Amino acid sequence: MYTAVWTVYNTSAPVIDPKHANQVVGRTFQLTGSGCAPFSKVVCERQDHQPIGEGTADGAGRFSIQISTSGQPRTLSLFVFWHQDVSSAVSETVTVRVLTPQIELPANEAIVGKTPLFRGNALDGSSVTLFSTEPGGTKQYGQANVSNGNWYRPPNDYLPEGRVRLLVKAQMGGIDVESDAIWLNVIHPPLILYPAAGAVVDTTFTIEGLKGMRGATVEILLDTLGHSVVATGPVIGGTDAWRVTVPDMTPGPLSLKAEQFVAGVDEHSGRTDARAFKVRPAPVSNVSINTPLTAR
């Protein structure tokens, strides 16, 4: 005669370590605790029962689960339970605070002036530092405090012309967390290629060049202190090339510069170096000579 053998499980709830209550966390953190069945599967869920991580308890019933906070709310409430043929009761809920900051504006790959306003979000009570990563190292552009989950910051210096990689770093409770990087295209001068310096040109002639920015308009200006525009033309779509026809210039020495602007960007680019030309007089055509009739 055989006697049935029963396995009895103690399905008491596991315990999340108290250090996690109101903890400030970054992109990932290790959620630890105890009270699981040895070698059982341990599952972590959000308060809305969305699974967010899992692991395995050790022989003493302790667990350590790596939690990713990517895409999670700033205030993240969690609980755990273990499973080994049967599931335990759930633990008490703990709430952690996610520090990871974000840059919301300008958008990635935007064309901007040298001092755009930056805007983003981060954990209330933290501070953020705006900085760029450049070939020569990093450069800071100032700090901002986070209020109601938001921060605002213009750079405290001009951004370098061209393509720039920027981030913010949030600091709170001894933890530093960087945002995802964005790339910005800081407005820069175009480049004049043709005609060559010192060229002799007609009174109406075409200037061509490169380094035009997406959607930009190139202006040709007299080489003066003012903003004396003599002609404009768009950057050719899908390229950085541009071509501007300069009309009706006065014969003689002529010195011109170029700059560009993009609709919606507050600042124009800087100007190119001056390009000197010699304008030849317009050809004389349809000349008629009237001679007096000689009396006979």
Rank of each mutant, 00 (worst) to 15 (best):
A231E: 00
P283T: 11
S179C: 10
G233P: 00
D202K: 14
T232E: 03
D202W: 10
P253A: 12
N185Y: 12
S269Y: 05
V235F: 02
M213P: 06
K278I: 14
G226I: 08
I192V: 09
P247A: 06
S179D: 06
M213N: 09
K211R: 13
S269D: 02
V262G: 03
D266C: 12
H188V: 08
L225R: 15
G198C: 07
G270K: 10
K211L: 14
S285Q: 15
I220V: 08
I207A: 01
D273N: 13
A274P: 05
P234H: 10
S255P: 04
R243K: 15
H227I: 10
I182N: 01
P251V: 08
D180C: 06
T217I: 13
G226H: 08
V279R: 01
V229M: 04
I182P: 00
D180A: 12
T272N: 04
A241G: 06
T232K: 03
R243C: 13
V284Y: 12
L193A: 09
A216E: 05
D273H: 09
S255G: 05
E208R: 11
T217L: 08
V284C: 09
V218H: 00
E208A: 14
P281T: 14
T272C: 04
P234D: 10
G252H: 03
A231F: 02
G212Q: 04
L225H: 13
A231D: 01
V265R: 00
I236K: 07
K278E: 14
H268E: 13
D273M: 11
E219F: 11
A276M: 11
D223Q: 08
T272K: 03
L222P: 08
G209L: 01
T245Q: 05
A216Y: 04
W183Y: 15
H268P: 07
P251S: 06
W242K: 01
R280D: 13
T245P: 00
P253L: 11
A274V: 12
G212L: 04
P189F: 05
P234E: 06
A258F: 01
P190T: 05
T203D: 08
D248N: 15
I187P: 00
P251Q: 05
V201C: 02
T239N: 05
Q260I: 06
G237Q: 10
G209Y: 00
G212D: 07
S179H: 02
T272L: 06
D223W: 08
G264P: 07
E267R: 09
G209M: 01
R280E: 15
L254R: 03
R280T: 15
T224R: 13
T203Y: 03
T232N: 02
D223E: 14
I220F: 02
K257G: 03
V201R: 03
G264W: 04
D248L: 10
P247T: 08
H227T: 11
S285L: 15
R271H: 08
G215H: 02
R275K: 09
T204S: 09
P190N: 04
L184Y: 06
R275S: 12
G233T: 00
M249D: 05
A241M: 09
V279M: 06
W183Q: 14
A274I: 09
V218Q: 00
